[in-house]
Design a protein around this nucleic acid. Structure first.
Lengths: 178, 178
DNA sequence: TATTTACGTCAACTATATTGACATAAATCT
DNA sequence: AGATTTATGTCAATATAGTTGACGTAAATA
């Protein structure tokens, strides 16, 4: 037994707290895994009906949300090679879900846009995933609602945050003034 | 222009609110994508040094956290086929990071355990990911801290939650009474 | 004894990524 | 104007992580 107030008791309490916070962090690691698994599962089912996969979804999503996106910007967001992107993008172009127009200021660039059909699929997919978030917000106590986006933003690499913030601002602008 | 207080103004406000909440949800979708990307990136670099990938990480993690896990239970957590698991698991067994003992009550079962070396790698990987969470908790205002795990838990399919809760409880027990 | 269960394995295939090398057209520098 | 850089496309080979389907085996159970 350790006397309360003693140095040993104090060290014990600190160790306990460390173990607890570590345990909590481990729990968060697993919750993040399960949450992401279910989160992407929603969209996967719908994508399957079109013969598309997650890679197509990501491209469609970001093109839809940021019309006029260039190949380079898309590569920067997705963090994949152009060869990998090209296969998926070509399928989306061929299937008529995305179209590319030559850049006006720089004609080497290909500005990407969703077609009407592509925008519809993107909207349906986004609706599925948004629905999950909206339901979560509904379930959560009000005080926890604002915390979600703060939390997710804090999970992003610090050196990446400005880029993500700029991306979100750009997507918002595209949405407000189409 | 719409007169304030008119039915048109009201409908306008509702549409605006809907658009805003949708926009927020869309933002969360993207933040979730970026957060998960960076979250798994941490571990990827360390795994590469051992010639392992994410698949190995997941197996190692869950076996380490729930010693004596059976193949069936692991398949249920990971949601992959036994063929897919087997290739990865065999590599972990061969490399001496995981070991399998015959079940005591049912000798058909293979109970999975990490070896000392496996436990060490699992701990190092978990430390990387825990560190991100701990840093996030430090950055976040106190009121938002508890919200993170609530939020992630709410993101899980409702019919899956009991299973996840049981899994976490089991992992916690294994940790407290080893 | 017959059947079911837990697991292993062979084979073929798909999706998504990689590296490396080379091609082309448009923009930009000198 | 000519040289160089940039944005993008493309061919080929390879790796990782998953799938379906078929078949095998040992242990538990009806």
């Amino acid at each position: 037994m350790v006397e309360p107030g003693s140095a040993a008791a104090w060290r014990n309490a600190v160790a306990q707290a460390a173990a607890t916070s570590d345990e909590n962090a481990l729990e968060l690691v697993e919750l993040f895994f399960f949450a992401y698994r279910d989160f992407v599962g929603d969209a996967d089912r719908l994508l399957g009906k079109y013969g598309f996969g997650r890679a197509h979804h990501r491209v469609l999503h970001f093109v839809n949300r940021r019309p006029g996106l260039t190949i380079a910007a898309l590569l920067d967001i997705l963090r994949i090679t152009k060869q990998s992107l090209n296969r998926v993008l070509k399928q989306l172009l061929d299937a008529g879900f995305v179209e590319a127009r030559a850049g006006v200021v720089d004609r080497r660039q290909r500005l990407l846009y969703t077609t009407a059909e592509g925008a519809r699929l993107a909207r349906d997919l986004a609706a599925l995933q948004s629905a999950r978030f909206l339901k979560v917000m509904d379930e959560l106590p009000p005080v926890a609602r604002g915390a979600a986006s703060e939390f997710l933003f804090a999970m992003i690499d610090p050196e990446e945050r400005e880029r993500v913030r700029a991306h979100l601002a750009c997507a918002k602008m595209a949405r407000e003034a189409p």
